[in-house]
Design a protein around this nucleic acid. Sequence first.
DNA 1: TAAACTGATACCATATTAGTATCAGTTTGT
DNA 2: ACAAACTGATACTAATATGGTATCAGTTTA
Lengths: 134, 134
Amino acid sequence: MKLINKDTDYAMQAIIYMAESKEGVVSVSEMSEKLEIPKHFLRKILQILHKKKVLKAYEGRNGGFSLAIPADKILLLDLIKIFQGPINLIECIFKKKICPDIRHCILKKKIDYLQGVISSELKSLSMASLSYRR
Amino acid sequence: MKLINKDTDYAMQAIIYMAESKEGVVSVSEMSEKLEIPKHFLRKILQILHKKKVLKAYEGRNGGFSLAIPADKILLLDLIKIFQGPINLIECIFKKKICPDIRHCILKKKIDYLQGVISSELKSLSMASLSYRR
DNA sequence: TAAACTGATACCATATTAGTATCAGTTTGT
DNA sequence: ACAAACTGATACTAATATGGTATCAGTTTA
């Protein structure tokens, strides 16, 4: 069971790298090298973050990406939602038969509670809080 | 992101079914029909539970399975561990580079805390508590 | 005007999950 | 005795998700 996949992991690293970088704009090539992340894969990830308005993109030579939002406003939960969908721990059981009998209701309450705890924890974690330049 | 997969889901249903059953021994065929779970798949799952000493098995005609432990001692966490391995939300990041710098430490603390919360919640959920015959 | 970049998108490899099939052995009703 | 109804063990297949690659088109700038 995994909470954070590669996309989210790499996205975090890249965002923190950008937040810590002196230059405004950082290219995929640079991040790929420094963070040792496959270039094409990282590019795909950053393109998604751009579409989601987390990053600004600059085309052409010397182009690259920069943060569109300050790092303390980018939450781990946001990234997980973007790359792994909403937190939904138990869709398999409740997707079709929604609370068909009491046992599922009890379970559902527990799961809902758990989801709440997880969400609020992940909300409390900003990319800025993970940077050494705090 | 899923907390409970099919194996665990079906295992729960079967265990609750056995706990609620009047007869001591219940066959896979019966449970497969009543719970609408593919027979061979369910069988594989119950064989695992037998190996793990959660169930007793009875061979031959009129054979089947019964609980080896009372339902209130079978915890959701146990089943998840059996079928999905230990709860380890973030192996991908920490497997190789264990806390290489501060950012991972902060993240690791949060994740560790979360894992604790999840574990204790799942521990508090017994199969008996999910049965209507409480 | 070519090098260095992003946009978009299609593709491939691998791992995990879900489900199927089957042969061997055990027990029991008739 | 023996076949039906069951489990033990294990191999196999299908579907889906994840991780990663490739490429053509367009943009910017030295």
